[in-house]
């Protein structure tokens, strides 16, 4: 925990600077888009949040598997601590996408596969939190939560592939592993920076959330008494 405390401030300041510089660059330095004009600048806020909201769920699913197989207690704490952060980032992704839709699509909400699957992700995060908190027995709650996280992980490939499998109003991904990015390089660099920076800031939130979880759950242990 002491090492984490020390690493925390490094991660925080480096990623905060990277994030702010990338956002500034994206919002005021890059040229406007040839179709969407200046409204495309929302990409620098929307894409990092969407990407991280899905990555957090994958992290949660991995932690759940580790908890169920190896019975690592910290892993169960991590699952519970990631959930609210995931909910926040998904909320940001939905809201920013909604606002972006107004000037481009001409609507703030449509029931297309990408948007609905992201809404399901948001509801899942909220559901997982309230489920865990409704148990009075922590061990049982951890087990139940991990199983449900694994069941729900099927939604992640659905979100990812929704724009390929069905006709959606949402456009396909601009950055893929296999193809050359469909976004111009001058716009890609700040986007990349904003994703990495946002990931670092969210990592800090996960650290804080886990710390709170550990303090709550281990409050009767002697090492906690020494720590605080």
């Amino acid at each position: 925990m002491y090492q984490v405390d020390r690493a925390y401030s490094y991660i925080f300041y480096v990623s905060l600077v990277l994030y702010l510089v990338s956002i500034f660059w994206g919002l005021f330095v890059t040229p406007e888009d040839f179709v969407q004009g200046n409204s495309y600048r929302i990409i620098y806020l929307h894409v990092p949040a969407s990407f991280i909201s899905q990555s957090l769920y994958i992290a949660m699913a991995i932690a759940s598997a580790i908890f169920l197989i190896w019975k690592v207690k910290l892993s169960a704490y991590l699952v519970r601590s990631i959930a609210p952060i995931g909910a926040i980032t998904t909320f940001i992704a939905l809201i920013s996408g909604s606002i972006w839709g107004i000037p481009t699509w001409g609507t703030w909400w449509v029931w297309d596969a990408r948007i609905v699957s992201t809404l399901i992700l948001f509801i899942m995060y909220l559901g997982l939190i309230s489920l865990h908190d409704s148990f009075s027995n922590h061990e049982k709650a951890d087990k139940f939560l991990s199983i449900l996280v694994l069941v729900g992980s099927v939604n992640i490939p659905i979100i990812k592939m929704s724009v390929e499998w069905w006709s959606t109003l949402h456009q396909p991904a601009s950055i893929t592993i296999s193809d050359k990015p469909a976004i111009d390089l001058v716009m890609l660099y700040p986007l990349f920076g904003s994703i990495v920076g946002f990931a670092g800031i969210v990592a800090c939130l996960v650290i804080l959330s886990s710390k709170l979880q550990i303090l709550r759950r281990e409050r009767n242990k002697s090492w906690i008494k020494n720590y605080v």
Binding site: I23, I42, L45, S96, I99, W100, I102, P103
Partner: peptide, 13 residues
Amino acid sequence: FVWSVLIIVFVSI
């Protein structure tokens, strides 16, 4: 649009 998204993101974080 851009500014309101920026504010929402910063405030929620």
